[in-house]
Design a protein around this nucleic acid. Structure first.
Lengths: 343, 343
DNA sequence: ACCCTGACCGAAATCGGTTTCGATTTTCTC
DNA sequence: GAGAAAATCGAAACCGATTTCGGTCAGGGT
């Protein structure tokens, strides 16, 4: 039988307010009645209704999760999924559950702000990597605490986490350089992808920094961060007849697609072309050749996002950003640079 | 400024009830006042509070998502992620949002039923593939509509979807058989994995059905459905010095792990050992060799789960199950069976 | 002019909690 | 043992919606 606070109160012979106080650790309840009431709560398996509680307190202990951007990443992108996993776990220990807004109900309207109000979420996390849309800006500027993952939110109650994309790029160039490569190519996502652009900009800068010249013909772009885009991009490079000796792909999936295209044409990785990816998703370890990549600390990104959001919700911070350090993970797709590097 | 129904009513010069009726398509409101009120709602961007609505109606339009089982699959298993993606999309068009319970808050208590009541979810989907835990049974037996994905729920208000695991196994054996293989091995998940066991049972039966003999030494098990387990399992097979000519792995990730182990020992796939996986996750297309596998129709599983749940919620069905047909996808890891088969 | 009928609208109870503040009881102090 | 302080408890307003049911009013029929 479905319980509510009134029934509990009756059974215990106390008032509704007393039961409520007990559930919320008020101090003005005697140990004796507290025990008695808790006993009954235990027996009946009573759980307070979240909607009633939310209605009364205007707090829901719910975090909205938004996958922004045109290409519906949703759960398909391994990088975001891993960040999300870590975020969910951390948010769980902080006492919050996650609610995922479906985009289908409001097709093209994407009115995230309204839905945040609708559900009374205490805060939300926005996962993107693409350009900022108006609907997101509205949220960013609102009073609702928001954390962007790979999305630069600058509102008063907002913050974001991302990896240092410039450092990512410069680590790649350095590695290529030390391995003796001077002809560096790049495979990115679509032109309006903020993250891809940062990596490209950092790459270009690092190339100059090492005194190399960049060849625009070796810079190609796919439609997204997924494997087929990398495959297509590398094929276009191959067809041009002018291949660089080393290619940095803005995601591991792009890199994997590039490798597949190369192999299909009978070209060897790393002997003919060296490849470095980005993210360090699990698959990197299982492919052949295993993929040299830049690791983004996905677990830390998730934990940081959770803590920043928590602080924002509890007014213990004013927003801001956290940029986490990437790390070069040397595997096979660039040759055994290990030996040379460790010398 | 945050709106509520009362303010809207005042601004429009009508009563609260009238506004509510307009929001819910009641017929006893004149076109004129309806237009006037809608105008104001539009201008103010008013969205009704879900908690107040849920409190009053006892419907939340929320679906709880539960990852059951000891090994925290969460978002890490590509198969479930794809089913979930499709489920989320379909549930979205039906007007529902998803809420993910975190396990951390109630460590080891896993009292899913209470949390369903707490959030007033209209139904929930339980993703598993492992054995049934008591906390799930409680939910299954409750009045809350539940759909299991790879989990056999039999309650009065429950149902489940899964692929036909026996057919999966028999398609594998048939394919191996037609390719001329007579020595068939198996790599499964842990012994208490329901799904793995079904596939194994079907495999054993099919082997007998083709008049072959099964060799228990060629049947090994990992700890889960992930890559490292497959790697370890294949290594133990290799170490035994007695390798089958063909191996069916209960998941693609297991299969990929097995391939990696084989390659590491200088063995060739498919020349030395043929491999078939299961699920047809995206990665199958990108590995080398590409992986022959049994495709589970993940999109259909998700859509079916959504519709079954919807019907259950609206009392339009009495539960039951849907078993979807698997399909053999021939790629490289068994050799070019294509030619022989198409003859 | 009167009654009847439908169309339209609103008052008020309700959902299940929280929180304030005053009332009552207990304990303490001298 | 009286009075004050502290501890304990409950009445009632409130959160923002829904829904029932009765009231008002316009217009049509006679």
């Amino acid at each position: 039988m479905q319980m509510n606070i009134k029934k509990i109160a009756e059974m215990a012979g106390v008032s509704v307010s007393t039961v409520s106080k007990i559930m919320n650790n008020y101090s003005d309840v005697s140990e004796k009645t507290k025990r008695r009431v808790l006993e009954i709560i235990e027996q009946t398996g009573y759980t307070p209704s979240s909607s009633a509680k939310t209605l009364a307190t205007k707090k829901s202990n719910l975090i909205g999760v938004i996958f922004a951007g045109e290409l519906n990443v949703e759960f398909t992108h391994p990088f975001f999924v891993e960040v999300l996993n870590s975020f969910k776990k951390q948010m769980g220990v902080l006492g919050y559950d996650l609610i995922f807004f479906s985009n289908e109900k409001f097709i093209n309207s994407g009115d995230y702000y309204s839905r945040c109000l609708h559900f009374h979420v205490d805060g939300c996390v926005i996962i993107s990597g693409e350009q900022m849309e108006p609907a997101i800006q509205e949220l960013d500027r609102s009073h609702i605490p928001c954390i962007g993952v790979d999305l630069e939110l600058t509102g008063r109650k907002s913050g974001y986490v991302m990896s240092d994309n410039y450092q990512i790029a410069s680590k790649v160039v350095e590695h290529f350089y030390l391995l003796g490569h001077r002809e560096l190519g790049f495979i990115g996502s679509r032109a309006d992808s903020d993250i891809s652009n940062r990596r490209e900009a950092g790459y270009v800068r690092a190339i100059a920094g090492f005194g190399l010249v960049m060849n625009p013909k070796w810079f190609v772009h796919g439609d997204d961060f997924f494997e087929p885009s990398g495959y297509a991009a590398m094929n276009s490079l191959i067809e041009s007849g002018d291949l660089p000796k080393a290619v940095f792909a803005a995601s591991d999936l792009l890199a994997l697609g590039a490798v597949r295209a190369l192999k299909e044409q009978g070209l060897r990785v790393p002997e003919d072309v060296a490849i470095i990816g980005c993210d360090d998703i699990e698959a990197c370890q299982y492919t052949s050749p295993t993929l040299t990549t830049i690791r983004q600390n996905k677990e830390r990104l998730g934990v940081l996002a959770a803590h920043m959001l928590f602080d924002l919700i509890n007014n213990q911070s004013e927003g801001g950003s956290f940029v986490v350090e990437p790390a070069l993970i040397v595997r096979e797709s660039c040759g055994s640079g290990l030996n040379r590097l460790n010398r």
